[in-house]
Amino acid sequence: MSDPWHHPHKECRETLHLAKELGWPAPVKASNHGGLVLNCPESDPGCRLRFYSTPKGVESWARNARRKIKQCPHVADETPFDRVERLLGQAERLLVAAETELKRQDAANHALELLAEADGQLDQVDRELTDLEAEFEAAATAEQQLAADRDLLVEDQEDGWTPEEFVEKASFGLRTVRTELRDLPARNPRHQAGTERHDAAVARVTSLRARLECL
C-alpha cells in the first residue's frame, strides 16, 4: 500500500508531514482533480487543503498551507517555537542513537578483528577482550538509556534502525526546523537559541555522514 502522506514535491511532502505531526487524519484522494484532500481533525471545511499533483507556485502555496495548518483551532495548542524546540529535541535524540549504534558496531568489528588475529596471540587477545567487555557494557548502558527515552522519538520508529536511518530521519526534522525558523521573528531569543541548536545538529549530521561513507 502506498504511503498516503507521500507527495512527489518536497515542499508538499513537508507540508503533509507537518499536518501528520499535529494529528490531522491521513489525506484522501480527491474525486474531481486527481490530487489529495486534507481535512483537519474536526473536518472543518474552513481548514480543508487540496494537494494537486503539480501545484503552481509550489513554495508559496506550501508556505501558506503550513501557516493554515498551524493556525487550525482544532489541533493541540503548540506555538511555532514549541514545535521548533520539539523537533530539535527529536533530531538530537536521533543523532545520539546513530552515534550509539556506530559505537556498538565499532566494538563488534574490533572484536572480529581481534578474533581473526588470535592465533598465537592469546595473551594479547585476553587483554583486548577485557577492554572490549568494558566497551560493550558502556554501549549497553547507552542503549538502555535510549530505550527509556524511546517514547520521545519520532512516531512509527522501529527497533533495529541503522545509523543511516537515524541520521536521515534527524536530517528531515532539521530541514523542517530550518523552514519553520524562516517564518519566525529573528530578534526573539528563542529564535537565536533554536538556530544555534539547529546548526550544531547539522554539523553532527555532516560528521556522521562522512563517517558512514567510510564504513
Rank of each mutant, 00 (worst) to 15 (best):
T15K: 02
E133V: 14
E42H: 12
E155H: 06
L87H: 02
W24H: 00
G194C: 09
D123A: 15
E164V: 03
L36M: 10
A200Y: 05
H191P: 03
A19I: 03
Q144L: 04
G173I: 02
F81P: 01
T54V: 15
E180P: 06
R182H: 14
S2W: 09
R150P: 00
E135K: 08
A186D: 14
G35L: 02
Q124F: 12
D159H: 07
Q145L: 08
R50V: 11
R178P: 09
E78A: 11
F51Q: 01
T176Y: 08
G120E: 05
E117L: 10
R127Q: 00
S43M: 05
F51K: 03
V96R: 03
L114Q: 07
Q145R: 14
L184E: 01
A139I: 07
V125K: 07
D126G: 11
I69G: 00
R63V: 10
F81V: 04
P25W: 08
H198Q: 14
E196Q: 15
R209D: 08
K10G: 09
E101F: 01
C72W: 05
P80D: 04
V28D: 08
T130E: 09
E133H: 12
E117N: 13
H74L: 01
R86M: 03
T141Q: 13
G35Q: 01
E101V: 05
E196W: 08
E180K: 09
P163I: 07
E143C: 08
A193M: 04
N64A: 13
G57L: 06
Q124T: 13
C47N: 04
L16V: 01
V125G: 01
E158L: 14
L184T: 02
A147Y: 06
H7E: 02
W61V: 12
Q157I: 15
R86P: 06
A170T: 00
P27S: 08
R67D: 13
H191S: 04
Y52M: 12
E11G: 05
L88Q: 03
V84E: 01
E158M: 11
W161N: 12
V125Y: 05
E14A: 08
A26I: 12
P163K: 05
T176R: 11
T179V: 06
P189H: 10
F172A: 04
